[in-house]
């Protein structure tokens, strides 16, 4: 039977794939161990894996509280910012009045690096939660807002014409045609916003956070505790990966209608080659 002859072949293909995927990470870890042996490198620059582990253990009592604080802030900012950005993008596309009133202002403010606004935020909103949330919401909503406007411009005109001749009004066209049509094009922007929301959280916690991962990191910096910093960086990295996976999983049912060939290159997906 063909199934029994194919099974071992495909499992060896799977194994080879796994080996190739793990090659670079394993190599880096080995290099790390080797480089930090016998004090070859000053631990302030690069502490050994053991130091990092010990630091993790000593930080762990503080972690639950910090995690909760940072995760709620980041998720709240990311979700709020994404919805705000999407709504702004849709309103700007829908209403000429909104475009004329806000368009110029938006073009003026868009290029300002968001982190440069931190001192102003402290002046305006004081220290604490408000400026932190505003920073994350603003940072993510700009990414989503710009992507929404661009995606709407690229909706094929024929879909809108089809909607019009079938009797649909502008509201129906926006809800039933434009919104679903732009969604796959927003996926990239939503993932970028999700990833950058963690960076925004770190920056936000410089604005006088009393608890949180970023706050914890700021303290580690003052003690020149490189191992502790690495622990927190690793935690942020893990959180970012988890959020990315969740975003992709949530979006899948909404973009099922698009064609995708996972794990293949853009050319390979067409030619059928690996």
């Amino acid at each position: 039977m063909s199934v029994t002859t194919e099974a071992p072949a495909s499992s060896s293909v799977q194994r080879n794939k796994l080996i190739r995927q793990l090659l670079v990470p394993v190599l880096l870890i080995v290099l790390w161990f080797a480089a930090t042996r016998k004090g070859a490198i000053d631990p302030i620059f690069l502490p050994s894996p053991e130091d990092v582990w010990n630091s993790f253990v000593s930080l762990s009592p503080l972690l639950p509280e910090s995690l909760v604080a940072s995760v709620t802030m980041t998720l709240g900012g990311f979700i709020g910012g994404s919805l705000f950005g999407l709504a702004m993008g849709l309103i700007m596309a829908y209403s000429r009045l909104a475009r004329e009133i806000f368009g110029g202002v938006l073009d003026f403010f868009r290029p300002i690096p968001i982190f440069a606004l931190i001192p102003l935020f402290i002046l305006w909103f004081g220290l604490g939660k408000t400026p932190q949330i505003v920073l994350i919401v603003l940072g993510t909503s700009l990414v989503i807002g710009v992507a929404t406007i661009e995606a709407i411009k690229n909706v094929p005109a024929v879909y809108i014409r089809a909607g019009l001749v079938l009797g649909a009004g502008r509201w129906t066209i926006y809800r039933s045609i434009i919104l679903p049509a732009i969604f796959p094009h927003l996926l990239g922007a939503i993932r970028v916003a999700a990833a950058s929301s963690w960076g925004l959280d770190v920056a936000a916690e410089y604005i006088g956070a009393q608890v949180g991962l970023g706050h914890l990191m700021i303290i580690r910096v003052q003690y020149l505790d490189t191992a502790g910093i690495l622990v927190i960086v690793a935690i942020y990295c893990l959180l970012a990966i988890i959020l990315d996976k969740i975003v992709v999983a949530l979006e899948r049912p909404l973009t099922r209608w698009t064609e995708k060939s996972a794990g293949k290159g853009i050319v390979g997906a067409i030619t059928g080659a690996a």
């Binding site: 094929p156 024929v158 879909y159 014409r161 001749v165 679903p180 049509a181 209608w257």
Partner: peptide, 14 residues
């Protein structure tokens, strides 16, 4: 007066 188009006008998400 409904039109059938030369371009692919069927909504791909439905």
């Amino acid at each position: 007066r409904v039109m059938v188009f030369q371009d692919d006008a069927v909504f791909p998400w439905m």
